[in-house]
Design a protein around this nucleic acid. Structure first.
Lengths: 142, 142
DNA sequence: TCTATACGGTCTACATAAGAGACCATATCC
DNA sequence: GGATATGGTCTCTTATGTAGACCGTATAGA
């Protein structure tokens, strides 16, 4: 079994890999249980909106214009259920609903920020790699 | 790279939010273009496998037992296209194929590690929040 | 008064994506 | 000869995501 063959200053990621065959099921594997949520396509965008401060439903919808209300509701419910977002209903007439990050949600912003910084700095590389890949696929003249 | 550590003092995340109405489309918004990939359900798991060192197709399949070959192939192709993973075919008799992280892929491991550390440390909170949420939903008698 | 808009959603119908599992060719082992 | 392993592809079915209509209340404007 190949160990980590180089000591290239990586964080010890193997700790996040479930022991083979045992804990890869959701509910026990934090990677799946948490990371899958961030990949919800909308979750990260909404968290980013809320990182600016508490917002209301319609404001979130404006901040992420191409999300449907259904998906916005659904994503917010999941975030609320996971304890990342707090939902407060003000009994005004039309009732207004405020969403804001909880302490847990707020604490996610730091590691998320690191990932976004990576995404921003490497976005050019990734896009270039795609172009290169697609061109060699179309014209494998190498 | 922002190294903000305080919970109430966030890194400037607003920079990752596209100017309203302009750049939320994929291809211009790094958040979508990159983060959506990590949410591919399998991508992170496979990257974690490869963080241990180069692996072959079947080894990856064993490391993530419940992925189908079809999804494994597809995910690896996407990672290769994005320049995060390099695919090398050795012309042995049943040809063997090795996958390994590129420098770009390797560079993702650090911010990803931060996110996984967060996921691990908050997993208990999140699961507890879910239980609490579900119980109040089922029995809203307060 | 009649209509339009905004609030915060829900509901239904449809399109896309994921998943299971058969299948392929080659080669070695028993 | 049959099983197993290599690295996939292909089709079929099911789950998920999306668009958009709809709902009731309330305010503003014509």
């Amino acid at each position: 079994m190949p160990r980590t063959q180089e000591g290239n200053h990586l964080p010890d990621l193997s700790r996040y890999i479930a022991p083979a065959g045992t804990a890869l099921d959701a509910g026990r594997c934090p990677v799946r249980d948490v990371l899958d949520r961030l990949g919800d396509k909308w979750t990260t965008l909404i968290l980013l909106q809320l990182a600016e401060g508490p917002k209301r439903f319609a404001a979130l919808n404006r901040g992420v214009p191409d999300i449907s209300k259904r998906m916005l509701t659904q994503t917010l419910r999941t975030l609320e259920r996971d304890g990342l977002v707090e939902r407060t209903v003000f009994p005004t007439k039309p009732p207004s609903v405020q969403y804001e990050l909880t302490e847990t949600g707020l604490s996610l912003m730091t590691p998320l920020g690191g990932l976004l910084a990576w995404a921003e700095s490497r976005h050019g590389d990734i896009r270039a790699a795609r172009v290169a890949y697609d061109s060699t696929e179309v014209a494998p003249a190498e």
